[in-house]
Design a protein around this nucleic acid. Structure first.
Lengths: 127, 127
DNA sequence: CCATGATATCTCGGTTACCGATATATAGCG
DNA sequence: CGCTATATATCGGTAACCGAGATATCATGG
């Protein structure tokens, strides 16, 4: 079970593998491309992530090919990996949206500056 | 400069502080609440994050209050922290959206490009 | 022919980050 | 008096990151 939260690196590896199987080096380039250069997955990080994701059953070794004398080891998502990625994408989207909402509130502050009924237990007066 | 990618914990702390200054324990509850329980920021993690964010100039100590005999140390975002949060939210939203697009592609037919509805709305469907 | 760079795999070790446990302190409930 | 909630903070083991290097093939080019 994924008791621990997924790391950024793991998330982007899963995303790179979501549409088709890819090999390590291809994942590296794909992550950089799909994040528009914002996320740079390092080589030293990649294989650790790959091992961890495999151990967790989120990805599996799809096949091995020899292309131009160079070995390519392709990985692909499992069903569980697909589900985990979907859930994580949901969490990230929600987090990003919450952040943006708050940024807008904090800057413009139209209407009541204080949010009155925000959550339970916040009913304290001020000292 | 934030050469290293921001951690999940740091992101959610910044988000919790985006609308108003909060103290440590309040951040803890706020993060859990705004993520709907999905993200549990641990006490042991919090103060390390707070120190790091302060050192990076993304937050500052706002004020100290004594409430019911208990000390409350309030932190607030700096302008730089606001900018960093905004940028990170953008990156997360882009990543989440890329992941969902790929999930849809991978699941759908291998034929022509399917055209999923755009927008922030979630088209989950993985029951 | 060899240097360089791109492609491709993987390991090692230092640094950073996470988080359970623990310590300290006040207040309220039973 | 013990338990829970609030509130701070530190310590140490584990997990993760990532720069650096090892190994190997092929293309470019000086």
């Amino acid at each position: 079970m994924a008791s621990r939260n997924m790391t950024q690196a793991a998330f982007f590896v899963l995303t790179a593998l979501a549409d088709q199987p890819r090999h390590g080096y291809g994942i590296l380039r794909e992550v950089e491309e799909l994040s528009d250069g914002a996320v740079q997955l390092r080589v030293g990080t990649l294989y650790g992530v790959l091992d961890r994701l495999t151990a967790d059953g989120l990805i599996v070794l799809d096949r091995e090919e020899v292309h131009e004398g160079r070995l390519r080891r392709y990985y692909r998502l499992t069903d569980e990996g697909m589900r985990a990625l979907d859930a994580e994408a949901e969490r990230m989207a929600a987090g990003a949206s919450a952040a943006k909402r708050r940024i807008a509130e904090g800057r413009g502050a139209p209407g009541p500056v204080t949010n009155p009924a925000q959550g339970p237990g916040l009913a304290g007066g001020l000292a």
